[in-house]
């Protein structure tokens, strides 16, 4: 189990499921069942569990915190209305996670398209509040902080510059730790297609990040 998966379960651990590997899934399934009958407390638990990931993915795709939170909220609203559809799923907990991310991805896409946002705008917004000033509290030198902020900005710009069809699977896989199958389920394409999209995304990033990689090489 990856560290990201562990992060997913940590809220459940807080809810008292302990370290039992299957306990998290069972707890989510139990809350799903209750939520589908209209139990708002159970659904609130589900929101607490999944909100971080949903909002993080949305942030990567829409590029600013305000819209990302908006997308995340709307994602859960859609989920509430569609909980019935999960009742017949074999593994409702896993299905719910992919389903939520799928909704978030689609909503983010819709928002981006509706607003016609350019990738570099998105990247600039994403970096708002995370420039050198945000790193100033660390013990590093000012020049190191500035350099790190610049590197981060360039990486964000490169990711944001990826075409959407490559950016979505790349974010889900390389930044959110999803498996190929999950990415395929979320984006609604074949797993093989996801693999090829990711190859393309990595190559594109490598090309765009070439100078940074060279700089690293020179160190």
């Amino acid at each position: 189990m990856t560290s990201r998966a562990l992060k997913l379960l940590s809220p459940m651990e807080q809810a008292g499921t302990g370290g039992d590997p299957g306990a998290g899934a069972r707890a989510i399934a139990e809350r799903l069942e209750r939520a589908s009958r209209g139990d708002r407390a159970a659904f609130s638990d589900l929101i607490r569990i999944h909100r971080p990931r949903v909002q993080r993915v949305a942030l990567r795709l829409v590029g600013n915190h305000e819209d990302a939170e908006d997308v995340a909220q709307e994602t859960f609203v859609r989920a509430w209305h569609g909980l019935e559809t999960l009742r017949e799923a074999d593994r409702p907990a896993a299905a719910f996670s992919s389903w939520l991310l799928g909704i978030a991805v689609h909503l983010s896409r819709d928002l981006q398209r509706a607003r016609g946002r350019r990738p570099e705008d998105a990247a600039a917004s994403l970096l708002d509040g995370q420039g050198p000033d945000a790193l100033a509290g660390s013990m590093r030198t000012p020049s190191a902080i500035t350099e790190e902020a610049e590197t981060r900005r360039r990486v964000e710009l490169a990711i944001a510059a990826l075409p959407e069809r490559l950016r979505v699977p790349f974010v889900l896989r390389a930044l959110e730790g999803q498996s190929y199958d999950h990415v395929a389920r979320i984006t609604g394409v074949r797993a093989a297609t996801v693999r090829t999209q990711l190859v393309q995304a990595r190559r594109a990033l490598r090309r765009m990040l070439g100078p940074l990689l060279d700089e690293e090489d020179g160190r």
Partner: peptide, 12 residues
């Protein structure tokens, strides 16, 4: 190096 850059760019 790529992984390192991506880790550095992770959203808080």
């Amino acid at each position: 190096r790529m992984r390192g850059l991506l880790d550095g760019a992770a959203v808080a």
